[in-house]
Amino acid sequence: MSAGVATLLRSSWKRSRVGLALLLTLAGGGLVLRAWLQQPRREVEQGGLRLRLERAVWLHEPTDHGDAARLPGAAGAPGPGQRRLVVEVTAFNPRGTPLDFTPGELRLADATRGTEWTPVEADPAVFTVGPARMLPVTLSFDVPPTPGPVRLEWVRGSERATLLATGRPPTPGVSRTQSRWPLRVEELPPGREGAGSVLFHGRLACASCHGGLARVEGPRIAPFLGDFSRVGATRVAGKSAAQYAYESLLDPNAFIAPECVAGVPCARPSVMPLYGESVTQQEMADLVRYLVGLQGGG
């Protein structure tokens, strides 16, 4: 082999190695980019809208007695063997024009099986988020037994982002005495009306949505509660006002009041927070006691 041919072969081999290294680098970079896109990000902007995951909590099915918040046996509760994941998100529009947001853009996916779940709330409502405005949304997903992790994904147009990666909790073998939230409101500690009033008007800021208690008229986005003792007992057949208040505070979407403002239906899903995650049993009892004492003003 001549020296010229040998030099040419060495040069060709070097170029091949460089090209191969470049391809491997690009392929590796693509894998890294793909992995990064699949990593959960609590706040994401897609299609001009910014979405932030505020909170996510697994509720126990009605027959479970675990130490996390769980649903009492109420209409709308997840079926036997299912677990409900409730998520709270805030949509923010940083643009100068209104943007639409559909709760169905959020999906819960089991990547190992290729299964997706849409929110339990079947109403395909489209919310319009005005410029520089925020929209709080609470959604829930009922998940049957699945061995793999599940991911909360936001699909908007051709864009997809992961907000949360979590595992469906197994059914715990815990006795009822260890349950954080009992099935019946009567099993809570005795409530104190004065302490409940302080919670309602203070830390929990219930009046910011429900408005004043003295009269039905007035700015609000949630039902009037001034006569809750009477109205609460009529919401769900067979449930007292206290039981209805208790279950609604644990799961605001278990029953949506038909009207929030005169002639205006309440939002679906409910925008009320999951108070079972932020109050103690005593505080829950105090708040319920205060609500059932409201008989027509103040």
Rank of each mutant, 00 (worst) to 15 (best):
P94H: 09
R168Y: 15
P72Y: 02
R192T: 12
G196H: 08
E88Q: 13
N253Q: 09
S270I: 07
V129K: 03
L51T: 03
S179I: 05
T234Y: 05
D64C: 07
P258E: 01
E247W: 00
T128Q: 13
T171K: 05
E159W: 09
A56V: 07
P72T: 00
Q82E: 14
V57N: 05
V18Q: 10
A125W: 09
S197V: 00
F92P: 01
L37M: 09
I221Y: 04
W154C: 01
W181I: 00
F255V: 00
E153W: 07
S158A: 15
V126Q: 10
W13R: 13
R151C: 13
V18N: 07
L85D: 04
Q243H: 11
A222W: 05
F141M: 03
V129Q: 04
P144I: 05
E283L: 09
G28N: 10
T234L: 07
Q281A: 14
P124V: 10
C260I: 03
P72M: 08
R180M: 14
V271Q: 08
A245C: 11
E277L: 11
L99C: 03
P190G: 09
F127S: 00
G96P: 07
V288I: 15
R107C: 07
R192L: 15
T162D: 09
E187S: 11
E45P: 06
S270W: 00
G194R: 12
H60F: 11
V150K: 02
P258V: 07
L23Y: 13
A69N: 02
E43V: 14
P170G: 12
S248C: 06
W58D: 07
G212F: 02
G196E: 05
S12E: 13
S248V: 01
P80Y: 06
L291W: 06
P252T: 00
Q178I: 00
G81P: 04
P144G: 08
L291E: 01
Q82I: 04
V86S: 01
T7D: 10
C266G: 03
E186D: 13
C266L: 04
L163M: 12
R52E: 11
A165L: 15
T102K: 01
P170N: 03
P269D: 08
E116H: 00
R34T: 14
G28L: 12
P252G: 02
G30T: 00
L108W: 03
T146E: 15
E283G: 02
H201W: 15
R176N: 12
S270Q: 06
L33F: 15
V185T: 02
K14Y: 15
P119N: 08
C209I: 04
L249A: 06
S12M: 14
R17Y: 15
V86N: 03
G191V: 07
D100T: 10
G48K: 03
V32L: 14
A27R: 02
E186S: 13
V279A: 05
R180N: 12
T138R: 10
R50M: 12
P147C: 02
A91Y: 01
R84V: 02
V261F: 08
E193G: 00
A205H: 13
F127Q: 06
Q39E: 15
E43N: 10
D64K: 00
L274C: 08
G226M: 04
P62R: 03
G28H: 12
E61P: 05
F200E: 08
T128H: 12
G196I: 04
G191C: 10
S11G: 12
